[in-house]
């Protein structure tokens, strides 16, 4: 009996890899199935079963669950992930080139002013990470049907337009244009009529009483 409860507790710990909403809905049932599949006297999850739970959970976190009836939102969310990927790529490239410049220049122009090299590098990487986080946040909120995600995304797109106007240097302009186009596509898709239907439907289910 203690073996069983130990096993159950260990399985439960592995379920944290799943998104919270999914866990609330299906967690106990998955646990029951895991326990039903367990060998008699088994006290800890096998490596294959653990790996399966971890990868499945992570996969669910990364792949948004969106109905087929909202193709525009699906596409918008995919674009936002692409935006995050482009930002990450440019951050890596910028860091590499900054690191090589750093050997020659004592100061760098980042965020509109000249700064000592270590400060510039930190600010640059920090800004890049914030941008990636914003993309991922918007992708997630949109896929959950949060109505404010459309508005915040649109405001962020406006800021990206300012960034586009203010950027200098070939690499920075190319990056800003790509990000701006991805953002334009995502915002346009979020305001399509089928998307509005999706966001309104999700809003109703979220406001309604929870069981």
């Amino acid at each position: 009996m203690t073996d069983e409860t130990n096993l159950e507790r260990r399985y439960r710990r592995l379920l944290v890899w799943y998104p919270r909403a999914f866990r609330r809905e299906n967690g106990q049932e998955i646990l029951d199935v895991l326990m039903a599949c367990a060998r008699p006297g088994q006290s800890r999850p096998g490596p294959a079963a653990s790996a399966d739970l971890i990868t499945s959970g992570l996969w669910m976190r990364l792949r948004p669950r969106l109905p087929r009836s909202a193709p525009a939102v699906r596409a918008a969310v995919r674009l936002m992930y692409a935006g995050a990927a482009v930002t990450a790529l440019s951050l890596i490239m910028a860091t590499i080139s900054l690191a090589s410049i750093g050997r020659r220049a004592a100061t760098l122009r980042v965020a509109g002013r000249n700064q000592p090299f270590p400060v510039a590098l930190t600010v640059g990487i920090g800004l890049g990470l914030v941008m990636i986080a914003l993309w991922l946040w918007m992708a997630r909120a949109s896929s959950e049907g949060r109505h404010w995600a459309r508005i915040v995304s649109t405001v962020l797109f406006g800021l990206a337009t300012l960034y586009l106007v203010g950027s200098r240097g070939v690499a920075q302009v190319v990056f800003a244009v790509v990000v701006w186009l991805v953002g334009l596509g995502a915002v346009w898709l979020l305001w399509r009529p089928t998307s509005s239907v999706f966001f309104q439907a999700q809003d109703v289910t979220q406001v309604g009483p929870r069981p």
Binding site: F22, I30, L34, A49, D52, L53, T55, S56
Partner: peptide
């Protein structure tokens, strides 16, 4: 089928209707 795989697939298939 492992339970993790199964429930991920079920969730996906429900979303895809």
């Amino acid at each position: 089928l492992r339970p993790g795989t199964l429930y991920t697939a079920l969730d996906r298939l429900c979303a895809d209707e």
